[in-house]
């Protein structure tokens, strides 16, 4: 069975989802200046990873499951979660996806197959394998997508899980989004493979599974590579490690300041820590969202006016999400003691 390249409708769907993620993240970021104090705590944005998220999740089918890290806004958006409920969760409001108990780092939407996240680097990887074990037992050809960053591949949980997943031929696709940075440490400073000039996908070899590196800013490339991994998993032939190379276009997360000092997004670490403005600007020139729009317009799949209209519709959708979240009440304090067996 060979993988079909996405048709025009799918390609436009990809652009739509990429625009939705980008615009949602811009609204999160702007909340810090437009509505100071509304976001409390940590947020981590997916801008720059849109093509990777959308290319991978273009293979999602009902019954599949997705688990991810704390940089988690892009996945549920793509899977169909309501952006208003997501924004309300990020604002800590009663109408949030998790009723204000989870926050930006712990978005969960079971109805759309998004089984949650871990704020602990690498910790979600074994849970994805467990979900895949349950899928293997159900025998309906369902797969699990496990998303994590390059930093997680230095955790014990990563290696332990890849070993079991490969040994048991679990239907899971491990998508490592390699954005080149652990907060302020570059991958080549902390990863032996990277320091030796090797792709991080080589780590798959130790666990007897395919490891593929792909340009994560190209949705078609990700679609092809993840598509093959998903087919392999659905067919019962086991997991694949996909290293998807992206560049996060925002800093690791918003500044966490002592009370009284407004939270905000600082400059990207490439500039703020390493003084490499040229590196950051090159990444901006390669921004996957305008690039993909350009490709679709150039290929005649969208007119410039059609693309503008799509952009405007998405902007309106995300502005509605912000308004909904701002209007949502704070949770009833009694809610703090719910959902806890005691």
């Amino acid at each position: 069975m060979s993988l079909q390249p996405p048709d025009a409708a799918q390609r436009i769907w990809m652009l739509t989802q990429m625009l939705r993620i980008r615009t949602f993240e811009e609204r999160v970021k702007r909340t810090f200046t437009d509505h100071p104090g509304v976001i409390r705590g940590h947020t981590h944005l997916a801008d720059g990873a849109e093509a990777s998220i959308v290319g991978a999740l273009s293979h999602f089918r009902a019954g599949d499951a997705v688990l991810a890290t704390y940089r988690c806004h892009g996945y549920p958006l793509t899977l169909g979660s309501d952006p208003g409920a997501m924004m309300a969760e990020i604002y800590g409001r009663a109408d949030g996806l998790c009723k204000g108990l989870g926050g930006s780092m712990h978005l969960t939407d079971v109805r759309h197959g998004f089984l949650g996240t871990s704020g602990i680097v690498g910790a979600g990887i074994p849970h994805a394998a467990g979900a895949a074990w349950a899928a293997q037992i159900r025998r309906r050809g369902e797969v699990v997508f496990s998303f994590f960053g390059d930093g997680a591949s230095k955790q014990g949980a990563f290696h332990e899980t890849l070993n079991i997943a490969s040994l048991w031929k679990l239907p899971v696709v491990f998508v490592m989004e390699n954005n080149g940075y652990n907060v302020v440490t570059t991958t080549s400073q902390e990863d032996a493979s990277a320091a030796a000039g090797e792709p991080l996908a080589v780590k798959a070899r130790a666990h007897a599974m395919p490891g593929v590196t792909v340009d994560g800013t190209d949705p078609l490339a990700v679609h092809a590579v993840v598509g093959e991994a998903v087919e392999r998993a659905r067919a019962g032939r086991g997991p694949t490690l996909v290293e998807s190379k992206v560049y996060r276009l925002s800093a690791h997360g918003n500044i966490i300041a002592p009370p009284g000092v407004p939270l905000h997004y600082p400059e990207h670490e490439a500039i703020a820590v390493f003084g490499k403005r040229a590196e950051y600007e090159a990444a901006l020139r390669g921004d996957p969202v305008p690039r993909w729009r350009g490709v679709l317009v150039q290929n005649g799949m969208l007119t410039p006016a059609g693309a503008d209209e799509l952009t405007a519709r998405v902007l309106e959708e995300m502005e509605r999400a912000v308004s909904f979240a701002l209007a949502s009440p704070f949770p009833d304090t009694a809610c703090a003691l719910q959902y806890n067996y005691a």
């Binding site: 074994p126 394998a129 349950a134």
Partner: peptide, 27 residues
């Protein structure tokens, strides 16, 4: 299939059981 040996990987097997429990098993 119902009584399954695992590698010596406590972090992963606890996670595996947890993930399976999220999806309807009672490990």
């Amino acid at each position: 299939r119902r009584v399954r040996n695992t590698p010596i990987s406590e972090a992963a097997i606890a996670g595996l059981a947890t993930g399976a429990a999220l999806c309807g098993l009672r490990p």
